[in-house]
Lab assay of single mutants.
Amino acid sequence: NQASVVANQLIPINTALTLVAMRSEVVTPVGIPAEDIPRLVSMQVNRAVPLGTTLMPDMVKGYA
């Protein structure tokens, strides 16, 4: 099972992602792969992401 990126805190809309804001977890459905965490740092989310939410490619500006 592949680990996905999960919000480690509430991430407000247009907030730049940080290492502290993300964690890796095996979840269903699978979201952005955990190995992409370094690439996600400083990218912005295009919606509010609640704690525990799996990050999907369409939630991160410039990711997809």
Rank of each mutant, 00 (worst) to 15 (best):
G62M: 08
P33A: 06
M56N: 04
V27W: 03
A21R: 08
P57Q: 07
N46V: 13
T15A: 13
Q2V: 14
A16I: 12
M43Q: 06
L55H: 01
L51F: 12
V41M: 06
A16T: 11
D58C: 09
T54W: 03
N8H: 06
Q2M: 14
V6K: 01
V27T: 11
E35Q: 13
Y63T: 01
R23H: 04
P29N: 03
P57E: 06
R23N: 06
A21L: 14
I13C: 09
V41W: 00
V30I: 13
T54Q: 01
A7G: 00
I13A: 15
G62A: 08
N8T: 13
L10W: 12
K61P: 10
P29I: 06
N46H: 06
N1D: 14
Q9P: 02
L17K: 00
V45Q: 00
V49C: 06
E35F: 14
V26N: 09
A48R: 14
L51D: 12
T53P: 01
I37M: 13
V60C: 04
L17C: 04
R23K: 10
L55T: 00
Q2W: 13
P29L: 05
P57N: 04
P38R: 10
D58Q: 12
S42D: 13
A3R: 12
M56G: 04
S42L: 08
V60N: 02
L40A: 01
R39P: 02
I11M: 04
A34S: 10
G52Q: 03
P29H: 04
R23G: 10
V6H: 00
A16V: 12
L17A: 00
V6F: 03
A21V: 13
P33N: 08
V6L: 06
A64I: 15
Y63I: 02
G31H: 00
P33I: 06
L51A: 15
I32W: 00
N14I: 05
L10C: 10
P38I: 09
T28K: 10
T18M: 07
Q44N: 09
V30F: 12
T53M: 12
T15S: 13
R39K: 14
P50Y: 09
T53F: 10
V49G: 03
M59C: 05
L10T: 11
I32K: 02
P57M: 06
A21C: 09
L51S: 14
T54N: 02
A64K: 08
M59F: 11
N14F: 10
Y63C: 05
M56P: 01
R47F: 06
T28Q: 13
K61A: 10
Q44M: 14
M22E: 03
A48Y: 10
I11W: 01
Q44K: 13
V27K: 07
S42N: 15
V26S: 08
I32M: 02
V41R: 00
L51E: 15
M59I: 04
P50R: 10
P57K: 07
T15V: 09
R23D: 04
A34D: 06
L51V: 15
S4K: 00
L51Q: 14
V49Q: 03
V5Y: 01
P29M: 04
R39E: 07
P50N: 12
Y63S: 05
S24D: 06
P33D: 05
V49W: 04
G62S: 08
A16P: 12
T53R: 10
T18K: 09
V30W: 14
D36P: 00
A3S: 10
L40N: 02
S24F: 07
G52N: 11
V60W: 00
T28N: 13
R39H: 10
P57I: 05
N14M: 08
T18S: 12
N1T: 12
S24I: 11
P29C: 05
N14K: 05
T53C: 09
A7S: 08
L51N: 11
L51M: 15
N1V: 15
K61W: 12
L10F: 15
V49M: 03
A7N: 03
P33Y: 07
P12C: 07
V60P: 01
A3Y: 12
D36S: 09
T18L: 06
M22L: 12
D36E: 15
E35A: 15
G52P: 02
S4I: 03
Q44T: 14
E25K: 10
M43R: 11
D36G: 04
Q44G: 05
M59Q: 04
N14R: 07
N14G: 13
A64L: 15
Q44V: 15
G52Y: 03
E35H: 12
R39Q: 10
V20R: 15
V20T: 14
K61C: 09
R47D: 05
V5C: 06
M22C: 04
K61G: 06
